[in-house]
Each structure stands twice: as structure tokens, then as C-alpha cells.
Simulated assay, not measured.
Amino acid sequence: MTAAPTSLAAGRPRTVRWLLRVHRPALYGWAVLVIALAAGLLWLRGPLADAAAAAWHQYDTTCWRPTPCRYDQDAILRYKDVYQYTTLTLLAIPFLAAAWAGAALTGRELETGTARLAWTQGVSPLRLLAAQLAVPAALVGAGTALLVWLHRLAWSAAEGRVDTAKAWYDPLTFYANGPVTVGLALAGLLLGALVGLLLGRSLLALCASVPAVAALWIAVHLTLPHLWPVATGVSGRRKSPHYTGIKVEEGVITATGAHRPTTSCTGDASSVCQALNDERGITGFYVDYHPLAHYWPLQLAATGVLLALTALLAALVLRLVRRRTTGTARRGTAAGTPSATARTGAPA
């Protein structure tokens, strides 16, 4: 009677070690990716940013004079290329996590029968699956958070120093600099695991997980601007409203003061637009946008939604496994096959 709690307590470390051993290639691949990308971001933050900033200083101080224009163009292009490659690699992590979870974590185990065999052993199916989800989620979440932090440091090192550095509201930079990417990576991992359980084929789950994450990313991109109240900039007929940030909507202001969204002639830049706005009775223009002050509210709101979605996906995965294992146990009992607990006499 006293040995049962000890065996249950010791079961969790053994399960974790078993998972790390089974998925050792993926663990090594993830470690290599994190270390290589972290090294690239540190290189980007230090020597590359300094060299590009020095090149732009040379350009700004010499290329407007009649003297020969001398600056290190290669340093500027090298910074731009490395920034683009590291940013795209970081944003690819949600797709990689979903593809691995669908193909290797659940899809392949169902396809080969390993999952059903493991469900009949001393560890209960739900506890085993919880460990299978928790361990990769911890590794993916920690690694992605570290890379996002390093990417933000690398971007900050060039802000105001490199003339071609991306603005904070650039879509790729916005996502790579904040916790939204961490939330997407965790949601992608659970989404891939769910796809693998539903399809039960590794290759099919691999092919379906990637577009599923793409659809999730599109939904986040379309929803994110509406998670926080916008700021509004207005102007008269002589000029369009000035703003810096994420544009949500723009349009015209009628004589009654109403804002009417439109995508055409939101300024009087041409004589055609001037005539059309005169005919409309337009008195000015407006733009709804998110300034820099809305950066963290948008990031945290979107991350919260993604974490809630991750919890929902985890509940769906556990519910699906519980339904399948309960059905398997009932069929085995009806056929006169004793359960693993009855054979061993040990609790799951």
C-alpha cells in the first residue's frame, strides 16, 4: 500500500526521460536551431549593426557633397540580409512545431500502433499524453521566448542608427519582436497534435498542419488590430492625415461630421479626387490607427487569446484520447480481455 505513491511519483521523471529518448533527433534539431539562430541574432545585434551604422554615417556625411561618395555598402546589405533571414526563421517556428507534432508526436504513433500499445501500459493514457504535450510545449515555449527577446535586442540596436532598419509596425518585425510568436508556437504545437490524432497518418498530418497554422496566423493578423481601441487622426481637405503606426481604417468625413470608410480618394492629391470629393460634400479625411503606445496592449491581448486557444486545443486533444481509450477498454472488456490494470494489479 505504501509503494504506490512512490511509484507514481517516480513515474513522471521516467516518462519525461523516455519521451526525450524517443524524440532525441527532434530535441537535437531544436537545440541546434535555437543555438544557431541565437548566435545569428547576437551577431546581428553587435558587429553587423555597428558596421551598418558606421556605413550609413559615412553615406550621410560624404554622399551629399561633391567629393567622392565612399561608404561600406556591403555592410549595409549584409545587415539587411541577416536580419531578413533570422526574422523569417524565427517566424517559421510555429509551422515547424505544428509539422513535428502532427507527423511525429501523434500521427506516426497512431499510424504504427505505438500509441495504442503505450496506452495499455502502467501509465494512464491521459497522463502519458499530458507529458507528451507538456515537455515539448516547455521546450518550444522557452526556446521561442529566448529567440524573440534576442530578436528585439538586435532590432533595438539598429533603431535610429541604420536608416533602412525596419519600423516597429512592419508586420514581420512586429510579430518577431513580441510574445505573439511564442503564443503562435504553442498553439501550433497543440494544433499539430490535434491534427495528428484526427488523421492518424504522419505524412497526411504533416501536410495538413502547416496550412492549419497558416490559417491561424491569418486569423490573428486580421483580428489583432481590433483587440484594442484605435487612435484617430483627422485632417482638412488640403492634406491627408499624418500618422505613424498600424493603419486599421481610413476614409472621408462628411458635412455632418460622420466618418465614411473608403479606399479611394482619401486625399485631394489629384484633380479627379478633388472633383469627386467636392461632389460628395467631403470636408476632411480620417485614419484609424495604432500608435507606438498600443504596441504592448496589442501584443499582450493577442498572446492572451492564443494562450486561451492553446488551452482549448489541449482540452480537445485530451478529450479525444479519453474517448478513444474508453472505447478501446469497453471493446476489450466485451471481448473478455482483461485490462492492463487488472493484469498487473497496479494503479494507472
Rank of each mutant, 00 (worst) to 15 (best):
P241F: 09
P179E: 01
A255H: 08
T262I: 14
C273W: 05
V220K: 05
R237D: 02
I246P: 01
A219F: 04
A187L: 01
I218L: 14
E279D: 11
C273N: 03
T254W: 03
R280D: 00
L186I: 15
H221D: 13
T283G: 03
T263E: 15
L300W: 00
Y289C: 13
A208E: 06
T254I: 05
S202K: 06
V234W: 02
G183N: 07
L306H: 04
L191H: 11
V248S: 05
L184N: 03
L292M: 12
I246E: 06
N277A: 07
K247H: 02
G251F: 13
V252W: 11
H290V: 07
G267N: 15
H259N: 05
H294L: 11
T244I: 00
W296H: 08
E249A: 04
A269K: 15
K239S: 14
P261V: 11
G178N: 14
L197V: 06
K239N: 12
G281P: 05
L189N: 12
G304C: 04
T303Y: 14
S235I: 09
E249H: 03
N277R: 08
G267Q: 08
A231N: 09
W217H: 04
L222W: 13
I218G: 08
V182A: 10
A231Y: 11
G257M: 09
T254A: 15
I282R: 11
L222H: 12
G236Q: 14
E249V: 04
T181F: 10
S209T: 06
